[in-house]
């Protein structure tokens, strides 16, 4: 335990994404596009020991909180992830992400003839029809995407 705490140090303010399945931290960072922001400091721990889940990844984003869309995206791709909000070195709020019922602006429809794939000024919306395995339905064209198609976008 002690070693881990040293590996990924505390942050003053921001978001901690914890219990990411081992090896998926980089994908998680790219999903949130935080690496594109030149000012955001990101600490990444990969294959860190955890008493609760064995091996895990952890991502700490300094000075930034997640939007609802970002949380939905994380919840969809890596359900079970735990998010902590840090203010003044203390956890102000903790939440376990559960697969949402609907996601907006997270997925791209895999139907090549869906209107949302043609420069229309709309954001994609999907309802999650089933959570295990995930089935998502495009609210524009009604196409159902299978878990594999969804995970390929991650």
């Amino acid at each position: 335990m002690k070693t881990n705490e040293m590996l990924v140090s505390k942050i003053k303010e921001g978001t901690v994404i914890d219990r990411i399945p081992a090896g998926k931290a980089l994908k998680c960072v790219s999903l949130l596009k935080v690496e594109e922001d030149p000012k955001t400091i990101i600490t990444i721990g990969m294959r860190v020991h955890s008493d609760k889940v064995g091996m895990k990844d952890i991502v700490k984003i300094h000075g930034r909180f997640l939007t609802e869309n970002e949380k939905d995206a994380l919840a969809l791709f890596i359900p079970g992830t735990m998010i902590s909000y840090i203010e003044d070195y203390n956890v102000s709020k903790k939440e376990y992400l559960e697969t949402p019922d609907e996601v907006t602006d997270v997925l791209v429809c895999n139907n090549p003839t869906c209107a949302t794939n043609y420069r229309e000024p709309v954001v994609t919306k999907f309802t999650i029809m089933q959570k295990e395995p995930i089935l998502a339905r495009c609210l524009y064209c009604d196409r159902v995407m299978l878990e594999k198609n969804i995970m390929d976008q991650f």
Partner: peptide
């Protein structure tokens, strides 16, 4: 009438 699925929903918006 449109050849794309979802075009009706887009139109209503």
């Amino acid at each position: 009438r449109h050849f794309l699925e979802g075009s009706g929903r887009v139109a209503t918006e």
